[in-house]
Design a protein around this nucleic acid. Structure first.
Lengths: 125, 125, 125, 125
DNA sequence: GTGGTCTAGACCACT
DNA sequence: GTGGTCTAGACCACA
């Protein structure tokens, strides 16, 4: 389904979350389609079922999937996902912090700005 | 000198580092000016001296300050600070990850982009 | 006959039970009228026959239906259904817990109360 | 600090959550006051630290506490807790379901309504 | 088979 | 000391 980056600083369960969010937002996991079971995915990624469980639970909390004990975990309609303003604010802080870090490295405002724009444009493709 | 956000998930020592970097890069702490002693700052911020120590060590490692044994810690010349390409790459990853997170929340590419631009513009002032 | 909410966290068999109870208590399923067979209903709802079986067993245990071997399952006389005091106590606990949850969310006693009243009034119609 | 009801149908971590919410909303845990550490509380309640952790995490998610790794978990200002509309809707469903259950037991609309009102009035004291 | 909860015990970074 | 993550393995109810 996807691969984990064991060298990443991101925790495993966060990587699982982000990968599945991407699959849902890109439509690979269509609305209502069943996600792999907790055990299946944990076996597939050779991680502990509890770690997958944690990711699935968080995905449900954020409205990306719904779970039904005994039946499985399913993708929600991505068009119904409503952004959480508190989460947006958090991410804004992260971006601001990263942007400042660039300037702290000795880059000018313009240089730092260009790097950010470049990263975003790259993502567009 | 500055304030810490105790409710933030950023670690204390990182907050100290970022604040001092800001003071140096904005010229508030001019080249050669003495930073508060570890004890002084830890008392001022009501945090553990070890935490300040750790921040100072990291600032020295990154070339923002130098310590003269027995005399104290001093700000380096900000114009001599050279960006570390590996660090830039790391920050780029952080920015990309944050940008994707915005999109995962249900925002369109344009909406996410606008948020980032806005954050940066705000910082300019 | 009725529909299930597959996204609900209520278990399927509980939903089946509640729906049938409703049909009996509202008189749609009059005394003595035959319920759909396990196979029929499971096909109709596209759920596992075991799940329907379990619901029917529970309905019988609670005195809402009776089964005649080889003939089927039939609705009991709703006027003969006597409230079980222990069950009432259980439900009272559920209501109290839900009410507290409303207050924990930051609602005042009055606000929480109004919500409950509203839910009940809505049900009257 | 509080006691768990091991005979309850509620899961342990949910009981921990509800108990702490109550302590915060009643002001026993004032804004900024430190909660017992994960290990401390787990020892106190003779449950596993992971279970307490789960409860603390959920409490943070809902805005009742904030946590800082290495420092501890602290109560938020209860006046700043904003109700989550989705959660309210969920609880409304629970109340409606419980109310219907009362009627399914053979109680009239008025009888069921009186029970609910009584439960709420009792809570007022 | 499914998800949900729990225990036991470990390791990590931060204070 | 603190919280955060992860593994291993167990038991439960539900489908």
């Amino acid at each position: 389904m996807f691969q984990l980056d064991m060298t990443s600083h991101k925790s495993i369960y966060e990587q699982v979350i982000d990968n599945i969010k991407e699959l849902i937002m890109t439509g690979v996991l269509a609305q209502g389609s069943k996600l792999p079971s907790v055990r299946e995915l944990s076996k597939d990624l050779t991680i502990n079922p509890n770690t997958v469980q944690k990711a699935y639970r968080e995905l449900e909390r954020e409205g990306f999937v719904y779970t039904a004990a005994g039946r499985g975990t399913f993708a929600c309609d991505k068009s119904k996902i409503r952004p959480d303003p508190r989460r947006i604010e958090e991410i804004e802080k992260e971006i601001l912090s990263a942007f400042k870090s660039l300037q702290y490295l000795g880059l000018s405002y313009e240089e730092a700005r260009n790097i950010v724009i470049e990263v975003i444009e790259e993502e567009k493709k």
